[in-house]
Design a protein around this nucleic acid. Structure first.
Length: 231
DNA sequence: GCGACAG
DNA sequence: ATCTTGTCGC
């Protein structure tokens, strides 16, 4: 159970930034999982206008990537989208959906940044700290940082830097597509983050866990109302 | 003041 | 993210 008092979501921009600056100290960039036998993917989709949304998570075996578990939850989205504060908009529902999983994963891939963030505390890092579970950020666009050309071949990577420090990697997960931006979230290092993303790709731009979560969430949205069990 | 700007 | 038709390519 997550202590509500330590993780308030109804906050102002200033308070949110303050929380990030405080929680960033809890991040660990050392691998904590001896072995990875399951990898989860998370995603959130919104309804038009943005009153509420649906968060979903799928757990796949690793390295086989067979479906082990999945869950989704529909709820209100109160915080607006502000670059740098995405977690205050999506984390509430993501924490809820995570708690509905029957089989917690060894690591979770999030559709957003890890430490490749203005205050080194993107969505993946925030979720990792809240759940105290290894996490990796895999975004479709960069939020911060500079990088050079990325090889055209699948698997090519180039470092993402900010103020001279390597904060992540830009990865071409597939030939002919735009690269993705990977950065460790919590309890994992950059090299392992990169390898995890590459090993979970199955011919698509996005790693399978995130891709499956995205499809699952979007499917349930079209089905209308939420399921009583959320599963 | 002018860009940049996860989902 | 979401709003949207057709279209190019494997």
């Amino acid at each position: 159970m997550i202590a509500q008092s330590l993780h308030p979501w109804n906050v102002t921009y200033r308070e949110a930034v303050r929380i990030q600056e405080k929680l960033r100290a809890r991040i660990s960039l050392t691998n904590s999982a001896r072995t990875v036998s399951s990898v989860a993917g998370a995603d959130v989709s919104y309804s038009r206008g943005g009153g509420d949304g649906i968060a979903g998570m799928v757990v796949l075996s690793f390295p086989d990537l067979d479906l082990m578990d999945e869950a989704f939850v529909r709820g209100k989205i109160s915080f607006p989208y502000i670059p740098g504060l995405l977690s205050f908009r999506e984390a509430p529902l993501l924490v809820e959906v995570f708690q509905r999983l029957q089989h917690p994963p060894d690591v979770v891939l999030y559709d957003g940044q890890g430490i490749a963030h203005p205050r080194s505390f993107g969505l993946a890092s925030h979720m990792g700290v809240l759940l105290d579970l290894p996490s990796v950020g895999c975004a479709k666009k960069k939020l911060v940082g500079d990088f050079g050309e990325v090889g055209l071949q699948a698997g090519s990577t180039t470092p993402l830097k900010m103020k001279g420090k390597i904060i992540g990697a830009v990865i071409r997960t597939r030939r002919g597509v735009k690269p993705v931006f990977v950065s460790p979230g919590h309890r994992i290092d950059l090299e392992s983050s990169i390898q995890l993303v590459l090993k979970t790709c199955r011919g698509f731009r996005l790693p399978e866990p995130i891709r499956r979560a995205h499809l699952m969430v979007k499917k349930n949205r079209s089905l209308g109302r939420a399921s009583p069990t959320g599963k």
